[in-house]
Design a binder for these strands. Structure first.
Lengths: 216, 216
DNA sequence: CCTTTCGGCGTACAAGTGTGCGCCATAATA
DNA sequence: TATTATGGCGCACACTTGTACGCCGAAAGG
């Protein structure tokens, strides 16, 4: 839209056009693997060979997309942490923010989900790294809350892993749902999180409760 | 290996060869989408055009693979139910069986995971159907156990969904791990399941416990 | 025995693929 | 102003892709 003057701006602009083109084409129907360089170039409005002025190959493009998606998720996690610092209960809020982000950025988020179990080991690892980092950050938040409420968990990282996995995969599987079912899906997600969180807390805190409940 | 006599046997044999070829090729590095008909045919040792004598197109092949993988998982679930009927605690056993199945059938299971978030909507839906069916079956098992132990849950299906999701995605992400870390991963999975299960149970059963634990 | 069915193959073709090479116009730099 | 660096393009090449068509040999069925 805006006509850039400097050359660096121009370059950045077409770079973004390429990334946008890839996202668009992928959400039509394709996965990244079945996406050709020529297809992306055409969608971006450049010649196929011009692609190489911006990325060495398609894999590098994918990594750029993963990083972009990851940055957005980190931001959400940071907001969650700040909410926790204000002493708010975080589950509902975090899920709501996360889901609304999923819906708004469906195309990009879906790319993450697809390639998380996709074909390129390099991309897979990059995404795993993002998820691991999110887990680490969430573990910190959980630990903060535990300390504040003077409770302890067996292993905050494990809980964080379970929560991240659930939110990521179930969350993504719900963004295609009709709006009417979204609210219910969100409630279900919160329920899952609460169950995990609470169960772990109970497990760690009260040995006698464990016997009472599990062994009836 | 065995030299078949009847014509139907012969056909079935090459059909299996095609499916095996697809699985093998996919686990080298590719996803299904980046897998070509010609590639599969070559691996299976037949001419490209012979492929059509067995499948109408690649998508149909994928569906056959999904069904095969699904059948194996149903079998595991059934074993789990039978274990429950004998009154055994099911979490460890089920996870152990499931993980050993994942490891033994890594290639096929990975196909499921990849295509669960893959590019073909038809395949995605087929896999979702398998996962939903597994969830339904697990919900029945959970309900059985609840009845036996005279407990109740807010919603067995929700719990089942959470457990299936966790086991499926975390389980799969661990089959590439070195053997030394597998045991720890398995323990972690059991922990997740217990947390979900227990948390949900506590949530439903004891309102006073809820206040006691959550609100300190 | 003769006929039909059918799994498999080779050929052929149009379409799409990644990418090397060299040219051009122009912004950036000296 | 003169030179260089750079983003973009067209062309060309060697492949790979899906699939239509027709032939063949042998099993199946009469």
């Amino acid at each position: 839209m805006t006509e850039p003057q400097t050359r660096a701006e121009q370059k950045q602009q077409t770079r973004e056009a390429i990334m946008a083109a890839a996202i668009k084409r992928m959400n039509d129907d394709k996965g990244f693997s079945s996406l050709s360089l020529r297809e992306v170039a055409k969608e971006a409005g450049i010649a196929p060979t011009s692609f190489y002025r911006h990325f060495e190959n398609m894999e590098e493009l994918a990594l750029a997309l993963v990083n972009e998606a990851g940055a957005a998720l980190y931001k959400i996690m940071q907001d969650t942490r700040e909410a926790e610092e204000k002493g708010e209960s975080i589950a509902e809020g975090a899920v709501a923010v996360c889901m609304s982000h999923f819906r708004a950025n469906g195309p990009l988020v879906r790319v993450l989900a697809r390639e998380a179990t996709g074909n390129s080991p390099i991309i897979r690892r990059a995404i795993q790294k993002v998820l691991n980092e999110l887990t680490r950050q969430l573990a910190v938040v959980i630990e903060m809350e535990m300390k504040r409420r003077q409770r302890n968990l067996t292993n905050p990282t494990w809980i964080a892993e379970a929560i991240i996995t659930i939110v990521f995969y179930i969350g993504i599987s719900t963004i295609d749902l009709p709006a009417s079912k979204q609210a219910e899906a969100e409630k279900r997600l919160v329920h899952h999180i609460r169950a995990i969180y609470w169960g772990a807390e109970a497990m760690a805190n009260t040995q006698h409760l464990e016997r009472q409940i599990m062994l009836g």
